[in-house]
């Protein structure tokens, strides 16, 4: 208990800027920034201040581990020696400040894919190893938040190196890993009242999440539903754009493309989306997923069945971005509940 108290620090909200200035000397600092009327995570520029009074960011911070565009090879002319971009990945350590627990959960989900015993994605791993995450408790979950449905919650701390809780005009910062603790060791210790107040907030936090979906048995049920007519129903209003997949913190499909300009070239990993027809189009013209319903099915199946089958966890963290930003308001919570309501007949059970 004593030890854990020592790891509880605090800082006045208006002092945060100074702390950041200090940290910037040794670290690249990634934090939420206000832009127009939304909030984006990005690398703080010179004199840029973070904006921490936000519900959640428009983009998902996954892009700092799995960038939308990332060089994997650079070359000039034709190469005959090994080329690698790995040495060039900035070795400067990074801090992501203010990441919401749902987004941190998504990184834990992605770890299973990018770092497993079959193959390790070195680019992802390098960024992962070089980054300290300071989670940020959610005092005001949105109506579209349903993180508690996925063994997570507004004060879920797994995956954080440190964890920030906003109380009044202070941030209570808890050191979790050695790296996290070390970073805040110069801050003042939080007193008992603060720790108590923090405990109060955390205690009832899960009840503040307004929305939930029941995912028990969904993976098993989906296995029997591949041929079900529900997919055509669900996908009818889908426009086939990539908003849901690109804003999703757990979507991880990518494309590999080469680009050459004046004899200089690079090979890049780019995000790709299963909602685009070209995603699975064969060179021969053969198209295994020709229709919108097949692509929608792939997205839902991948998250709620395939991923669970391969890695033991559902690839959704309940952040609600796909719901709020879909141009035609396709709501994944609704999809899950309609899957739940499907009564399987014998003909669906192969």
């Amino acid at each position: 208990m004593k030890d854990s108290l020592n790891n509880m620090k605090y800082i006045e909200k208006n002092k945060l800027v100074e702390l950041i200035k200090e940290l910037k000397k040794d670290y690249i600092l990634i934090a939420p920034v206000k832009l127009k009327n939304f909030v984006l995570f990005r690398e703080l520029k010179e004199n840029e201040e973070p904006y921490l009074d936000f519900l959640n960011s428009r983009n998902s911070p996954k892009e700092f581990f799995f960038p939308q565009t990332e060089n994997i090879v650079e070359f000039e002319g034709i190469i005959d020696k090994r080329v690698s971009k790995l040495e060039d990945i900035k070795n400067k350590k990074r801090i992501i400040l203010g990441m919401r627990p749902c987004d941190i959960k998504s990184i834990l989900i992605l770890d299973k894919l990018f770092i497993n015993e079959d193959y390790v994605d070195n680019y992802y791993k390098r960024l992962r190893d070089n980054t300290l995450i300071f989670g940020f408790g959610c005092n005001k979950p949105r109506t579209t938040c349903f993180c508690t449905s996925f063994e997570s919650g507004p004060f879920f701390k797994e995956g954080s190196d440190g964890f920030i809780t906003a109380i009044g005009d202070k941030f209570i910062i808890e050191g979790i890993t050695e790296g996290g603790k070390k970073l805040i060791e110069k801050l003042e210790n939080a007193d008992k009242d603060m720790v108590k107040a923090k405990g109060e907030i955390e205690k009832n936090a899960n009840d503040t999440v307004p929305s939930s979906v029941k995912v028990e048995k969904i993976p098993e049920k989906l296995r029997e539903m591949f041929e079900h007519p529900i997919w055509e129903e669900i996908s009818e209003r889908c426009l086939g754009c990539g908003v849901c997949t690109y804003l999703c913190p757990t979507c991880h499909c990518f494309d590999i493309q080469d680009e050459v300009i004046n004899e200089r070239g690079r090979r890049v990993k780019n995000w790709d989306s299963c909602m685009f027809p070209i995603f699975t189009l064969h060179g021969s013209g053969h198209q295994p997923r020709e229709f919108r319903y097949q692509r929608m099915r792939q997205r839902i199946m991948h998250k709620f069945n395939y991923y669970e089958e391969n890695f033991g966890v559902i690839a959704c963290c309940g952040c609600g971005r796909c719901i709020t930003q879909c141009p035609v308001n396709i709501d994944v919570r609704e999809i899950i509940s309609s899957i739940k309501n499907v009564k399987l007949t014998i003909s669906n059970e192969k």
Binding site: E74, E76, E259, I261, N262, R264, R266
Partner: peptide, 13 residues
């Protein structure tokens, strides 16, 4: 004009 990539490489060369 493709700036970023070309110049980044250019600098290195």
């Amino acid at each position: 004009v493709k700036k970023k990539f070309a110049t980044e490489r250019h600098r290195k060369t």
